[in-house]
Structure formats: C-alpha cells, structure tokens
Nucleic acid binder design. Structure first.
Lengths: 254, 254
DNA sequence: GTAAACCCTGACGTTACGTCAGGGTCAAGA
DNA sequence: TCTTGACCCTGACGTAACGTCAGGGTTTAC
C-alpha cells in the first residue's frame, strides 16, 4: 500500500477515530481520493491537508456542516482560511490564559474567604465565539444576506450534493480553459455561456447572484491574487479570461 | 426577587442557555438551592461557584457525568480542583499557541509550494487530553482500580442518586459532630458505627473500601490540610475525631 | 493454510443540548 | 383591576457528532 495512507493510519496520525473519518466521508467533508478494489479508503496528501484544515476549524468550535460549507465555497481559499484560523487560535489561546487567570482569582477568593463578584466569575466565558470571525467573512463579501442564504441552503447538503457542486465548478473551469486554449475570444457566445453557467451554479447552489454581483466577483478574481491563483492553478491566464467572459456575459444580457 | 438570581439571569451571566441549566439540574450537576412557590429556580452564591467550576471542567473537555462524579466525590476539594484546572488551562493555552504555530507552518508550506511532513501536520492535535490529569488524581489515591470502579458506578447516577449521596455524607458528618460535642470518645461503639457507616457509604456508592484502605484515607484526612479543612468546616475538631473513629473501627473488626 | 490485524457497511445508542408546545407567573403600565 | 410582554415551568421530540457493535471481507506474516 504505497498509494497513500489507510484510514487507520490517518486516524492514528491525526488523533481521531476511524468512525470520525467514516463520518466525514459520509458528510462529504473529507472524501478520500481513492478506494481500493476491496473498498478500502486511501488518503493522499491533499486529503491530509483537507483534514488538517477541518481539524483546525473543529478545534475552533465550527460545526461540521459549517466547515463543509466554508471549504466547498467557490471562493474558498486555503491560505486565506489558514490566516483566519491563525488569528482565531491566537485569540483562543489568549482566552484560555485569561481563564487560567480567572481560576487564580477564584483561588485567591476562596483562600481569602472573599466573595467573588458574579460578573467577574464568568467574565472569561463566552469571550470566544466563531461567529464573530464569520462576520468578518461577511464583510469581505459585502453581502450579509448572501452569506446567510448560503448557510441556510447548504446546511443539509449531503456528500452527493457536495460532489455535484465540485463537478459543476470543475466543468465550467475546464470548458473555459479549453476555449482559452482554442483562442476563442472571451466575448464569444461559447465563453459567455460558460460564464453564465458559472453564475447559475453559484446562484443555484449557494446564494442569489445577480449580473451586477457577478461582475463584482469577476473584478475580485483578478484584483485579489489569491483568487487569481485559484484559477491560474487550473490554467494559465484563466483568471483574466474568466473575468472578461463574465463582464461580456453581463453586458450581453442587457 | 432578592434571594438570588433567576435562571435567565444566570444564563446570561455565564453565557450558557436556559436549557443548559435545566439540563444540569436534571442531571443533579447543578441543582439550584431554592425553588419559589411558583417553581422558579433561584441560584445563590454557592450555586454560582459550582457553575463556574462546572464550566471550567467543561471547557477542559470533561463530560458532564465525569464532572458530576468529580464534584460529588467525598474527597472533592474546591481549592485542589481549582489548582488542577489552572494547570490544565495553562496547558491548553499553550496547545492553542502551538496550534497557531502549526497553522503558520502550513501557511509557509503552502506559499513555498513545499510538501509538509504528515506527522508535522497533525502534531498539535491530540496533545491535550483531560485523561492525563485524571491519572494524576489516580496517583493521589494510589489506587487505579478504585478510580475506575468509581467512574464505572457513577456513570449513570441520576439527580436523585447524587442527592442521596450528599444526604448520606452529611448524615455521618452531623452524627459524628454531635458525638464529638457530647464528649463521646472516638472508640465508643457509637462513634465507630458512624465511621463504619462512612466506610460503607463510599464502598457502596463509589468503590470498594477495605478497612486498611479506610485507615489510609483517615490518615490523609489529618495529614492533608485541605481535607482537614473540609471536616473542620462542618465542626471544629471533626477531622481528628473522624480519623480516630476510623482507626478504632478498623481495630474493632479484627 | 491459519490467525491476527485491519478494513468494509449498516445501524442502534449516547451525549449535550436545541427547539417547540402548552401553560403558569411576575411586573409595569393603562 | 386588567392587560400585556417578558420570563418561568415541564414535557418531549429532534439534532449533531460521533461511540459501539454486528457481521463479514481483506491483507500480511508465520
């Protein structure tokens, strides 16, 4: 078995149970990249990177459905998430330290036979809330309603749903990459159709995307190097091509 | 309402839900000291101190049944628990900081296009385990089997069970305090009977306590000022009296 | 070939609440 | 005094995230 790691190996490595990994597979949260003929799950490097990020989110108090949504988001960026997670972990570490101080205060109060103020007793609790960091993500998208709608829709997505989401996304990317290769202008109907499909995919799967909003996303794809990197990974020049096709598509519809 | 705080006030103060507090009451984990004629729960200062400690344990990953067992343990000492919790919180804070560093490493690896070693990826997970601290408590009692048996038995204790446990403990303490007041020698049958009842209570409710072991506990009650303080709180001189009665009882049975 | 360790799917159970139903209580304002 | 909104109660079903077990297949070393 040199293709990757078995489920037992991953479970031990990551200090989680086999059942947990089964569960994540069922949810479509972490689907192993390979299955042997015998049906064994095989996890590769990308799977491990996904698991690491899942575990960071989990440690920070996110629910699994929430984690699935974040990581399947068409705008999900691993680096961006890692930066956010770093900030959250630092904050949580600080909260733990503050809680330790609260224990110290409780010790002093008990030893001194002093009554501790009720608000001081519980001050350290409730300080850390993952939701605050999500609100930061809302600001990034500039659309609170879109964010909420996305959460509402994906809350019950199954493994099959997520697999479908991925397929749709990749299909558009591949089609556009092919058109780019074939020298098709970005305002050609074929390219614009794919841009429209891109819009419809998000609109159907996550939240309403108007043409105006789609243009906003397109600007973001080339303005933000992290998003650009996502598309460049698929094919060189794709970010710009995608952007141009989206703008052309938006103009076409008027 | 000046007798204490209502459930809503406590819930807000402690950043927990009313349902959570209902649940803790059902479990016997935190039973409010008072109920109004209308059936309203009223929480006093001691209740708040209990809740604080429950929340510390909860934050540290203990299950509720586990927390109930620890806090109902006849040898439970608030100060000792606070010291342990302080240590655990400091350790957990450290782990969060280490995890933040692991995120940094993942960021560097991703930006540098470098493959991260699988073991390094998950090193920060699994480092913090409440069970390690429980093993410390085992060493204190010097009896691993007793500890495990105690956990096994109390796992399913209900609110009524815990209330009964408390009654039994207090009954013995009060009876001995009365005998002490009446000038009854510690080796009088009446005192010894209470010592025996004390042994039986623990034997029946928590784990097997032989006469030899009971003597060991008695030595601990006067040797360790924290335990002594527990009995002195009930009645001055009770720790020594309890010790003497236990020794006399152990000698009687031979 | 054998046995132990590992894997699979399926399914019920556990833990810690979240949510809701239906109704009683408290306190302020009209 | 009556009204109303906020708060409280018990009861009970549902959810999230697995834990545990059953029954059986697969892999690997002896």
């Amino acid at each position: 078995m040199v293709l990757g790691l078995t489920i037992g190996e991953v479970a031990e490595l990551a200090s989680v149970s086999v059942r947990t990994l089964h569960h994540y597979d069922e949810l479509g949260l972490l689907v192993p990249s390979l299955r042997t003929e015998a049906g064994y799950r095989v996890y590769d490097d990308a799977d491990l990177a996904t698991l690491q990020q899942v575990l960071f989110f989990k440690e920070l108090g996110f629910g699994l459905a929430e984690i699935a949504r974040i990581m399947h988001d068409p705008h999900f960026d691993r680096l961006e998430a890692l930066h956010m997670q770093h900030r959250m972990l630092v904050d949580k570490s600080t909260q733990m330290a503050l809680m330790a101080e609260a224990v110290d205060a409780a010790i002093d109060a008990t030893e001194g036979g002093v009554r501790m103020d009720a608000e001081d007793m519980f001050e350290a609790f409730g300080e850390f809330d993952p939701k605050e960091y999500e609100e930061e993500a809302e600001e990034r998208w500039g659309n609170t309603d879109a964010y909420k709608e996305s959460a509402r829709r994906t809350k019950r997505y199954t493994k099959e749903d997520w697999i479908e989401v991925r397929k749709e996304t990749e299909a558009v990317n591949e089609a556009l990459a092919s058109l780019l290769d074939a020298g098709v202008p970005a305002d050609d109907p074929r390219a614009m159709d794919q841009a429209e499909q891109h819009r419809v995919n998000i609109d159907k799967r996550f939240y309403p995307v108007s043409r105006e909003m789609h243009v906003g996303l397109a600007e973001m794809y080339i303005a933000d190097p992290r998003f650009a990197a996502n598309y460049e990974k698929v094919h060189a020049g794709l970010a710009q091509y995608m952007h141009d096709a989206i703008l052309a598509n938006a103009a076409r519809k008027k």
